[in-house]
Nucleic acid binder design. Structure first.
Lengths: 143, 143
DNA sequence: TTAAGTATGCACTTCCATTGCATTGGATGA
DNA sequence: TCATCCAATGCAATGGAAGTGCATACTTAA
């Protein structure tokens, strides 16, 4: 029952984003929903051994274009992704948030409650996107 | 005369950082000093066609370890580097600054006058490094 | 001048992102 | 129901950048 609910939710969300909710896409999006950290392509690949890398790659790209996931560059050089929150428009002031990368466990999390501070820019510069990544030791590793 | 001054300055700076000021290292550091944007390995490689990639790579790594340059991850997936300012200890509150990446000209600059705002973290998390990159249109491209 | 340690050059590997093309599958209209 | 079309998926291959092992050249100090 819970599973079914989740499935329907994700399905609605994909449709809303203009993405056809294929089995593959539901699978991948549900997987991402279950994670509490940002995932790399390889993570998804490992979770679904049978699925082609390319498929995952393109699925994620589609999600990204449609605003279903956002990309995170945590400084490791490996692209990570996390589901956007509901109603997210990736608006700088309202939706973008802080990311934390733990150098010990190598995991990256979205701190969605920690929005970006206001940032001043020199005259003539215009901001379209902001990436704020704090690196250090996370709660789990810091004990 | 100016050139000589620069050379001596850089030499002093390398020595200060505990790096032997070889011809190669002076060359590379001086090149970086002249740039007003962060440079990628490839940029340096192109500037000095005769020099081995690996040498540049290791030179930069050395610089980075000794706190002479800092690495910038501007979201392009390509590592960029810029000289630290004098007296920089890469201290979060005092030295770290904002980076701006222009999606038009693809250049990344250090806005050293724009220090990082204070950032709150959830209980249990500790910050060691912060990367703040704003993407958008720079002054030159925005006209 | 020689020995030791460091820096540089060359060749090679690995990892991940990305693309082209063939194939499958699902929606749609006849 | 069947034919058709387009989107999604799978497979193979490419490309770009980071990184490493080893041989050689250079510097410094004894």
């Amino acid at each position: 029952m819970e599973g079914k609910q989740v499935k329907e939710d994700m399905e609605a969300r994909l449709l809303e984003g203009g993405v056809r909710p294929t089995a593959m896409r539901l699978l991948i999006s549900k997987f991402m929903l279950q994670q509490d950290t940002a995932v790399a392509l390889t993570d998804i690949e490992n979770a679904f051994a049978k699925v082609e890398r390319t498929t995952i790659y393109r699925t994620i790209k589609t999600f990204e274009e449609k605003g279903i996931v956002h990309q995170i560059d945590d400084g490791t050089g490996i692209q990570k992704y996390a589901l956007c929150e509901k109603g997210c428009k990736c608006d700088i002031a309202r939706d973008l948030h802080l990311h934390f990368h733990c150098r010990n466990c190598n995991q990256t999390v979205c701190l969605t409650n920690y929005k970006l501070p206001h940032i001043n820019l020199p005259q003539g510069y215009s901001a379209e996107d902001i990436s704020l990544v704090v690196t250090g030791i996370c709660k789990k590793c810091g004990l």
